[in-house]
């Protein structure tokens, strides 16, 4: 009974979440609109818009026609540095979690064998 009620609450929460999201999406500018804030020449604070600036200046600044690479490694190099550190941290966490556990189980197995003897 209690599980049933919890299930109803969960599903209704999901539906309310979907309704809220769709309501929020009605306020977005349509896809591909050149007049939406992300695609304008000037941002809301009257500074040059980042994306448009990158498109105009990427080749002149970095001599690489691929703007994504230019942004990734040059304009936003700090960002990529952080992401790469996150990847290294994830790898090291996997290493530490699983390798240390293996040594432990080996020791416990040895102990079990000794105890049996």
């Amino acid at each position: 009974m209690k599980d049933q009620r919890l299930k109803i609450v969960n599903y209704s929460l999901l539906l309310i979440f979907l309704a809220l999201l769709i309501y929020a999406s009605l306020g977005l500018s349509p896809r591909g609109d050149l007049n939406s804030w992300v695609n304008r020449e000037e941002s809301a604070a009257h500074s040059p818009n980042a994306a448009t600036y990158y498109i105009r200046h990427a080749y002149h600044d970095t001599h690489s026609p691929n703007m994504v690479t230019a942004i990734l490694a040059d304009y936003r190099g700090y960002d990529t540095l952080g992401e790469e550190t996150v990847i290294l941290t994830a790898g090291i966490i996997c290493f530490l979690l699983l390798r240390r556990e293996r040594r432990k189980t080996k020791n416990s197995k040895n102990k079990e064998i000794k105890a049996e003897k």
Binding site: D61, T62, S64, A73, D74, G77, T80
Partner: peptide
């Protein structure tokens, strides 16, 4: 300068 940035991007990549 732009070629230097290009080489720097290659190293980083």
């Amino acid at each position: 300068i732009s070629l230097r940035r290009s080489w720097g991007i290659l190293l980083v990549e």
